[in-house]
Amino acid sequence: MSENPPNQPGRPEDPYGEEPTQPTPPQQPYQQPPSYQQQPPAQPYQQQPHHEQPGSGGQQPFYANAASSAAGVARDDTKGLLGSLFDFSFANYVTPKIVKIVYVIVTILLALVWLGWFIFGVVTLFSDQWYIGLFTILFGWIVALVYLAIYRIGLEVFQAVVNISEKVNRYAERDGIV
């Protein structure tokens, strides 16, 4: 027979002869170990190290006015359209004020040109070259829309350059460069 005594009921068989240990309960998922749970509180803003801004005489954090200056990037409309047109110092940009007017004028002119093409197409329908009139009526509006899109893109480029320039000037004023 065998030399091993039978297992006692309720105890698992241990082939190595060691005492079974109590299993540790599993930790909750996404739980940090106890050593990381007690972190020191963050220091207040005033106790952070300060960096000096170029051109400023005192100690001031370089990011202290970031939110207020970003909110202050909005355009100065202190002068009207005529005031901006005759501003020989170029302190105020006229492009933001005039771009809407130019776009309305271009839209009206292109609509009138398309209307002229349409009338030309209708008149040529009753002539020997009726296919030119038909082509003008069917596709003249597409040509007008393409020209309108080209003018719009050009005006948006001008507007974007002026917006970038205004923001750069505001940040330069904030940082004391200008």
Rank of each mutant, 00 (worst) to 15 (best):
Y93N: 13
V168N: 02
P41A: 04
E173I: 07
T136D: 03
T124H: 08
P54G: 03
Y131G: 00
R75E: 09
N169Y: 10
D175E: 07
R75T: 02
I101E: 01
V106K: 09
L148A: 11
V146K: 03
P61C: 03
S89Q: 11
L110Q: 08
V106E: 15
A149H: 08
G133E: 14
L155D: 08
I98G: 02
G10C: 07
P34L: 06
N65S: 09
W114A: 03
T136W: 11
N92H: 15
P41R: 02
T124Y: 13
T21Y: 10
V168S: 01
F88I: 09
R170Y: 00
R11T: 11
L85D: 06
G10Y: 14
S35P: 03
T21L: 13
I177Y: 15
R75I: 02
V102N: 11
Y131L: 11
Y151M: 07
F158L: 12
I137A: 08
G57E: 15
G17K: 02
Q159W: 12
N163E: 12
F139R: 03
G72L: 05
T107S: 13
V157R: 10
G140Q: 01
L138N: 04
E52G: 04
K79V: 14
S165H: 10
V157C: 07
D77L: 07
A74G: 12
V122A: 05
V146H: 10
L125T: 07
V99A: 15
Y151G: 12
L82W: 15
Y36H: 05
G140W: 07
L85C: 06
G17F: 09
P20Q: 09
E3T: 08
T24H: 03
L134N: 13
P23L: 14
V99T: 12
I101F: 08
W114E: 14
K167R: 06
F126H: 03
A70G: 05
V168P: 00
K79P: 02
P61G: 00
F139V: 10
L115V: 11
G58F: 15
I108G: 03
Q32D: 15
I137R: 00
T95C: 01
T95H: 13
Y16L: 07
S89P: 01
A66M: 14
R75M: 08
L112R: 01
Y63D: 14
K100A: 09
Q38G: 00
R11N: 02
Y171I: 07
K97I: 03
I142L: 12
N169H: 10
A74R: 12
Q8N: 12
V123W: 13
T124I: 01
P25H: 10
G154C: 04
G80K: 05
P40H: 05
M1H: 07
I101S: 06
E156D: 12
P41N: 01
Q32F: 12
L115D: 04
Q48K: 05
S127P: 04
A111M: 02
A149E: 09
R152T: 15
D14W: 03
F62E: 08
E173T: 07
